[in-house]
Amino acid sequence: MSRLNEANIKTALEIIARYPRPKSALIPLLHLSQEQNGFITRDAMVHLGELVGVTSAEVYGTATFYEMFRFEPVGKYLVNICGTMSCALMGAGDLMHHAEHKLGVKAGGTTADGMFTLAHAECQAACTEAPTLQVNYRFRYKVTNSDFDALIDDLKSGKLSDEIPSHGVVARIRQRIPADRGVGAVAPELATENPVWMDGKAAL
């Protein structure tokens, strides 16, 4: 059982309602599911297909395209070390080598205690701060070997649990559109007129 729970179904329906076509909500919903379960399960994909009105195969096709979705359990903390050019120029290779020794797993592996999954990552858009890494998509910049050791120790001791949620949670703040403020999405075929403010007069 890893269909969305009641609260998440409510959130899911709220998200779906924002799009002119339900399938558009698929990627946000996959995140929601991964947030609930830590990874994407088979049942979850069936459920999401039902929610947005597509086949499970279509959900599977979309989900497997994107690297953030995992189909098997990963560690509580996913440590992504960037290895693209700027980071590589600034020593990412050595950092990865060190990380493998520190955690006792090869890149791609998960520690026996299920705490850490170490992975190669591509450019994280923090090139001036190379070498960089992300723990569950939270950045660490200009990471030295001792920075890395301290990070792992802090994660183990729970010191960073406020800042870094467990794997699956990306953004902890959701967009909420108040019912009285939202315009609402309409299917494109039903919106066939120029918006009212395009009437040649100032809006204010």
């Binding site: 088979r42 069936v46 086949t55 499970s56 195969a57 279509e58 599977y60 096709g61 497997t64 395209f65």
Partner: peptide
């Protein structure tokens, strides 16, 4: 009957059904 789809990406792209479906 969208019961087969491309899965995975790039050089690993495959045509597949949903697992066990």
């Amino acid at each position: 009957d969208a019961l087969i789809s491309f899965t995975s990406r790039g050089n690993n792209t495959q045509v597949m059904t949903f697992p066990d479906e």
